[in-house]
């Protein structure tokens, strides 16, 4: 029994918990590591695609991290980028093909994201920076943590963009009709990609105001 406890402690040691928690704030993939910006701009005009994307990226990062971590000792460094990309792309495409064959409706909604997932720099970035040098289990946690950190920011951006740009949340209209009659208008600028950048800028501002360690020195 004591062996079992030791095993569990090893699984969720404080170091491993950190792997899960840090990406949510201190090493957030978007606001600190600057990874995965393109997809953050592309899917955050509405809340729904942002959530779908957050879930898919979390799963893919975790699985890809584990696979690469298992293979890490055999991969020749010179061709590691190709190996990583081929592994990720093959995984994602095969899953997409299976979805297309058996749950066509789901696949239709997700296929938009397939390209975005494969080229998402978070996945490549974590493979390169973490999975290549760590064991499978920590790599798995790292993947989940980074996926969640990424998803968190995505959902915050999408919340504000949808609320101010389309006047709705998750497709439900929130702004009462009377507001529009009084002259309130949805801000069309919010759904354009440049505003996503500015929203991220503001999020960084707020985050660093509270987490002083992250402030950059000139």
């Amino acid at each position: 029994m004591s062996a079992e406890i030791r095993e569990r402690e090893a699984l969720f040691s404080s170091k491993n918990i950190k792997l899960l928690k840090n990406p949510l704030n201190l090493s957030n993939p978007i606001t600190v590591q600057v990874l995965g910006i393109c997809s953050a701009l592309a899917v955050t005009a509405k809340l729904e695609p942002a959530i779908v994307m957050a879930i898919s990226v979390t799963l893919v990062t975790a699985v890809a991290n584990v696979v690469i971590s298992v293979l890490r000792n055999g991969i020749p460094p010179r061709i590691r980028i190709i190996v990583q990309l081929v592994v990720v792309a093959t995984l994602v495409i095969v899953v997409d093909q299976i979805l297309k064959a058996f749950v066509y409706d789901v696949s239709k909604q997700l296929s938009v994201f397939v390209g975005l997932i494969i080229t998402n720099c978070i996945i490549m970035g974590r493979l390169e920076a973490f999975a290549m040098a760590n064991k499978p289990w920590p790599s798995f946690l790292d993947g989940i943590g980074n996926g969640l950190g990424y998803g968190l920011i995505l959902i915050v951006i999408a919340f504000f963009r949808e609320l101010l740009g389309s006047g709705s949340i998750y497709g439900f209209n929130l702004i009462p009709e009377q507001f529009y009659e009084l002259g309130y208008k949805n801000n069309g600028l919010m759904i354009l990609p440049p505003m996503a950048l500015i929203v991220v800028g503001v999020i960084i501002w707020v985050q660093r105001y509270y987490t002083r360690d992250l402030i950059e020195k000139n």
């Binding site: 592309a42 005009a45 509405k46 695609p49 296929s111 938009v112 949808e162 759904i191």
Partner: peptide, 8 residues
């Protein structure tokens, strides 16, 4: 469509 920007 195959892959237009969600929401736009």
């Amino acid at each position: 469509h195959k892959g237009e920007t969600p929401g736009l």
